[in-house]
Every structure is written in structure tokens, then in C-alpha cells.
């Protein structure tokens, strides 16, 4: 469990950014992962009074605030309307409803854990993220960036016509961390496919066919940890790529 001396509700994203420049301060997202550490913080910066818990729609994209909870992602009718069960599939295995009512989109994305279902799911969607200082960035760029002290406020998911999406993961138990995550989108025959839970960050692959992707996936790193060996993950990658591609070929819109 962490310790902290001060607790500040940021009055604006800029305020949060300023506070977050001090290395001993930290943004408080859902609090679920933060508590696993034993760090001593000076100030916890709470974004929960900035109205960042909304999912909004424009003509061309959905905009999600950083404080949207994983449970909101799972149950949002808007997300379901455009992406079917995709956002439910990438969240419903995460611990439990109570956990998902705490954990946030921003927390998951900013942490960029290698095993993140959320990061894996966002990678193939051509998203943008908004940071207080850096402004709007492609999500793929952000996902690969080193950690800095900027503050994430929003994520935009473009509403692409004829996009098909599918999310699958494998886990030793149904609510455990994944042994492999796999998310794919298909737009005009071009497949973008993210594979996570295999190294420090999920990776995004592109290809026109299943065999393209299988070939690309062979060059990725597959680490060994308590949940699985490198060989098992490599094997799972093959299986999940085949499965999501079969699903995409099935041509449902959206696919799930």
C-alpha cells in the first residue's frame, strides 16, 4: 500500500499537470493498481471532479474521458452500438464488477501495462489520446512512448465505416490476468491486430491475410512469467490469430 501526505482534487487538467510535474506526486486513477506499490507520495492528484467520466459522440468519433471506468466501457450502449461486444469482451474478465467500477480507462491506458486488455483493445482502432501538454497524439505512438509526466485526459475512437472488430484473450482462470490478449480490426480488407500479455507493451501488427499476421507474430517477443512460458505464449498467439481471423472472415458487423 502506498502512503501520501496530501490529496488534491484538481480544478482543471492544467492544474493536474502542474501538480504532476513533481516526481513525488502522482495522478490517482482508479487506485486499484497504485495500492499494489509501496511508494511514498507527497500528493495524490484526483481527477474525479473534472467531468472526465463521460462517453460522448460526435459525427466522426466517440470521445471518452480518462476517468471513465472499465465498467462504463463494458456497459456503454454507445460503445455497444458501434463495436458490439468488443468493449465488453475486453473488460468483463478483469477481476470483478466492483474492481471495474473503480479502475479507469485513463489509469489502464497511462500505465500501459504489457498485459493490459484495454491497451490491446484500443491499439487496432486508430485512436487518438489527448494529453494536457502534448495535445492529441495517435494512440499507437502513445502506447510505445516512454512514461513521462504529462496527464492523459481523453481518448477518441474514430467511427470508421465497415470496420469489423474482435477481441479475445486467454487466461488461466477467467478473472486472472491474461496469458495472451488479441484484438483485431478489419477495414476494407486490411487487418490490424494487437497482441498483448507477451512483453512489456502490447504490439500492433498489420496484414491482409491470416498468414501475413502469423508470420509477423513469429518475430515478436514472448516472455516467460508466472502465468506461462514463452513457448506457450507463442503457441497461444498462433491460436488466437487464427481464431480472430476466422471470426473476421465470418463477416459479422461488428464481429464478436
Amino acid at each position: 500500500m502506498y502512503t501520501a501526505r496530501n490529496y488534491v482534487f484538481a480544478d482543471s487538467p492544467e492544474h493536474a499537470w502542474e501538480l504532476n510535474q513533481k516526481k513525488t506526486n502522482t495522478i490517482l486513477s482508479g487506485g486499484c493498481w497504485l495500492r499494489l506499490g509501496r511508494r511514498r507520495y507527497d500528493t495524490l492528484i484526483d481527477l474525479s471532479k473534472l467531468g472526465l467520466n463521460q462517453i460522448e459522440q460526435t459525427d466522426t468519433y466517440l470521445e471518452l474521458g480518462a476517468m471513465v471506468t472499465l465498467r462504463q466501457l463494458e456497459t456503454s450502449p454507445l460503445l455497444a452500438q458501434y463495436f458490439g461486444s468488443y468493449f465488453s469482451d475486453c473488460t468483463r474478465h478483469i477481476v470483478g464488477v466492483q474492481f471495474r467500477n473503480c479502475a479507469t480507462l485513463g489509469g489502464s491506458v497511462a500505465a500501459r501495462f504489457g498485459f493490459s486488455d484495454i491497451v490491446t483493445a484500443l491499439l487496432p482502432l486508430n485512436c487518438q489520446v489527448h494529453l494536457v501538454k502534448a495535445g492529441w497524439l495517435p494512440f499507437t505512438q502513445y502506447a510505445a512512448m516512454p512514461y513521462d509526466r504529462d496527464v492523459l485526459t481523453h481518448i477518441r475512437i474514430p467511427l470508421q465505416k465497415h470496420i469489423q472488430v474482435v477481441y479475445q484473450s486467454t487466461r488461466n482462470t477467467q478473472t486472472d490476468l491474461p496469458t495472451l490478449t488479441c484484438a483485431a480490426s478489419c477495414c476494407d480488407g486490411r487487418i490490424s491486430l494487437a497482441l498483448g500479455a507477451r512483453s512489456s507493451r502490447p504490439s500492433l501488427l498489420h496484414g491482409n491475410t491470416q498468414s501475413d499476421l502469423l508470420q509477423e507474430a513469429e518475430h515478436l517477443t514472448y516472455v516467460e512469467n508466472m502465468r506461462g512460458s514463452s513457448a506457450y505464449r507463442r503457441h497461444l498467439a498462433k491460436i488466437l490469430i487464427q481464431r480472430v481471423c476466422t471470426c473476421l472472415e465470418g463477416g459479422q458487423h461488428p464481429c464478436s
Binding site: 486467454t170 488461466n172 496469458t179 506461462g228 512460458s229 513457448a231 506457450y232 503457441h235 497461444l236
Partner: peptide
């Protein structure tokens, strides 16, 4: 483990 089974089948 799932891994034991999958890799043994392979």
C-alpha cells in the same frame, strides 16, 4: 495447467 495440456498435445 492449461499450458501443460496444450504443449503436450502439440
Amino acid at each position: 495447467r492449461a499450458e501443460d495440456i496444450a504443449l503436450a498435445i502439440e
